[in-house]
Amino acid sequence: MAEQNEEKLKKVSIVVSKGSLEGVYPGLIMANGARMEGIEANLFFTFFGLEAIMKKRMHNLKVATVGNPAMHIPTIVGAIPGMSAFATSQMMKEMDKLDIPPVGEFIEMIYDAGAKLYACKATVDMFHLTKDDFCEQTDSVINVGKFYEVSAGGQIIFT
């Protein structure tokens, strides 16, 4: 049995910085899992991680099949057109068996669970995006200073 005397974690703020499917899911699972344990959760999407909350992109995230030795396929095979889509659909099937939702549904669930979702201002400016590019669950576009403010008193996790 785990040590029960330790002070319970009260808040986590998770940075999602990657836009591949495997780059996005760990942050989403951790944020959702935090809420399931009664832990306050913030998600901060930055750089390509922003794709996870962009209306036009969030439903089409893909597994990277190139430059990933853990895929155990040669880079040249991973580069064949359709490989990434194939790997993505296989992974999504396995995740569905575990009742892990697709990105759009997951974002909705995490929001409904009470987590707050933020977009990174520097990236939004760099990619010339506006608040309208993001799904309705997105709370606001905030800068790094504000991110530290909302993270105060909790743990920060970078993914």
């Binding site: 399931m36 009664g38 409904d112």
Partner: peptide
Amino acid sequence: TSELYELFPQGPAK
């Protein structure tokens, strides 16, 4: 989901 969290705060599944 939002209702579930309201009914069972601080850990709905558990």
